[in-house]
């Protein structure tokens, strides 16, 4: 069952498309439910499919194709670090090493307290601010240094 808040947000997205094209809102509906529940379980994908009136496989195909959907738990804060060329040239390897060392986890692993997960990202289209990362798919942190990463982790640890 989707929450009333989720339904309200999905309806806002549905209004962007013709009435008989409810599938078009699946991208945003999955995003909305993921934000609310932390990740997308099979049940969550089913809930979205049912609400839109589309086959479950159609929703699952989308959820498994786009890499910002999380089909496994990612902890409270998912940190995605871009390691593509422009970031690599400006030291993203050092940022990744520092994060992994500080948090004691590798890519796609969640810390024991369930707080953090590190992911390797592809180009986010912000290469002028390299090296960079984003938190929970929404908040971009650019021009990173190991000091800035420490400050960010401290801030997130408080929250």
């Amino acid at each position: 069952m989707l929450s009333a808040e989720a339904i309200e947000k999905i309806e806002y997205e549905l209004a962007k498309y013709p009435k008989d094209r409810r599938q078009a809102a699946v991208m945003s509906a999955l995003r909305i439910v993921q934000i609310e529940r932390g990740w997308l379980s099979k049940e969550s994908v089913t809930d979205v499919a049912k609400y839109l009136g589309i086959p479950e496989i159609a929703a699952m195909e989308v959820a498994s194709f786009y890499n910002m959907y999380d089909l496994q738990p990612v902890g409270q804060y998912k940190i995605t670090v871009c390691t593509n060329i422009s970031c690599m040239l400006r030291g993203s390897d050092e940022i990744v090493d520092h994060l992994q060392h500080t948090l004691g986890v590798g890519f796609n692993e969640v810390t024991a307290d369930g707080k953090f997960c590190i992911k390797e990202g592809e180009c986010m289209g912000c290469c002028g601010g390299a090296p960079l990362l984003h938190v929970n798919n929404t908040h971009m942190h650019e021009f990173l240094t190991t000091e800035k990463v420490d400050a960010l982790l401290e801030e997130l640890n408080k929250g």
Binding site: R21, A58, F65, Y66
Partner: peptide, 26 residues
């Protein structure tokens, strides 16, 4: 309207992008 991708380079290709607008894999 604004619509969004969710992590797929291929959607920069115009017909993949159109598929994605329709709510499909790109």
């Amino acid at each position: 309207y604004a619509v969004h991708g969710y992590g797929a380079y291929i959607c920069g290709e115009e017909t993949a992008l159109i598929e994605s607008i329709e709510g499909k894999k790109g």
